[in-house]
């Protein structure tokens, strides 16, 4: 076990956290590969997250970020072949590889030690079951709570996520709640057993900006009070700045840039990160909007990925003969950061 944990730390090409170098991270994903038949949708993926910290995984639709979270949860169907390791430190200290767990052990972790919140609060709750029953089910899946204890816990969680009049909400059906309220219920459900790791897959994308801000605030508060690790998946760098400690930018199934969120947002090294930043609405100190600089084109299909650097067809900095031939690897750029670009030094200077 010790050697496993040692490997988990040593193997990180880029230490993603700038915190003190303690033992192993709560979740360390190494060389993760996901393929459907011959189509590789994720390759060589590497990230880690510590308790009490938030890692944002950022990328456009089709970058492989959601499929990565499903792989870690053990929710990918049998049609996917998964390689690599996802080492998770359990409450009792045991380190398990989430990708190699039996279905039964994987299920025992889900909802208990690892939980997930999804994008569409409108469809993620079962429409024919009462809110209270859906909350209590988490406890039933992982133990034998008494009716009273289960109900009390459900009430407590509804209160924790700030749902007004929780007693009557227990008996409500999902369609009787607003979108923001439903997402709060989803969060309450995910946190019923105080998991060590919460994966939130675009939890605010379907919501109004005002509700989005509320949910972000709620997640941040809960994370601090429960000391859990949060993996926050989003396509919006604007949100990263508001919630994340660390960030991993994904493009076409790989991490192209990673590091502390503030540093990456302030001085992005990868042209793709710059493109995402240029796409996010921003204002300068005086409040005037900075002009949008969108990235041209779209994410390539994983069936026919471009040769060389996968971003080169959309990259303004691409150099013919180099970027379309050689595939870059994630290399350290100092102070806990890494970038996967052949020309990042030239671009920076």
């Amino acid at each position: 076990m010790n050697s496993m944990m040692a490997m988990a730390t040593d193997n990180r090409a880029v230490p993603l956290t700038d915190g003190p170098a303690t033992s192993s991270p709560l979740l360390g994903v190494e060389d993760l590969g996901i393929a459907f038949g011959a189509t590789k949708v994720v390759e060589g993926l590497r990230f880690s997250v510590d308790p009490g910290r938030t890692l944002a995984i950022v990328g456009e639709s089709g970058s492989g970020k959601s499929i990565t979270s499903l792989a870690v949860m053990g929710l990918l169907g049998s049609s996917a072949s998964v390689s690599g390791r996802a080492l998770f430190r359990r409450r009792d200290g045991e380190v398990v590889d989430l990708l190699r767990l039996s279905p039964g052990r994987s299920r025992a972790l889900r909802g208990d030690e690892i939980a997930m919140v999804f994008q569409e609060p409108m469809t993620a709750l079962n429409p024919v079951l009462r809110i209270g029953d859906q909350l209590v089910e988490v406890l039933r899946n992982h133990g034998r709570p008494t009716r009273g204890a289960a109900r009390a816990r459900a009430l407590e969680m509804l209160r924790t996520v700030g749902i007004p009049d929780p007693e009557s909400r227990l008996h409500a059906y999902p369609h009787e709640l607003s979108g923001g309220m439903r997402q709060r219920v989803m969060i309450a459900m995910a946190l019923m057993l105080e998991p060590g790791l919460l994966i939130a897959d675009e939890p605010t994308t379907a919501l109004d900006v005002t509700i989005q801000a509320q949910i972000l605030l709620l997640l941040r508060r809960l994370q601090k009070s429960l000391g859990m690790a949060l993996v926050f998946i989003t396509h919006d760098l604007g949100i990263v700045g508001q919630i994340a400690d660390d960030v991993a930018v994904m493009y076409s199934g790989r991490v192209v840039e990673a590091g502390p969120a503030r540093a990456v947002l302030a001085t992005p090294n990868h042209p793709y990160t710059r493109g995402l930043l240029g796409s996010a609405p921003q204002v300068d100190a005086s409040g005037t909007p900075l002009p949008l600089k969108p990235i041209p084109g779209i994410v390539p299909s994983p069936v026919f990925p471009p040769a060389g650097c996968r971003f080169h067809p959309r990259c303004g900095e691409a150099k013919a003969g180099l970027c379309d031939r050689t595939e870059p690897v994630l290399e350290p750029t100092g102070s806990a950061r890494g970038v996967s670009c052949l020309r990042w030094k030239e671009i920076a200077s």
């Binding site: 299920r107 025992a108 889900r110 939980a115 469809t123 899946n141």
Partner: peptide, 12 residues
């Protein structure tokens, strides 16, 4: 989606 949610909760 709610079936995925149910699996994510660790439902048998």
């Amino acid at each position: 989606d709610y079936i995925r949610t149910a699996h994510a909760k660790g439902t048998p």
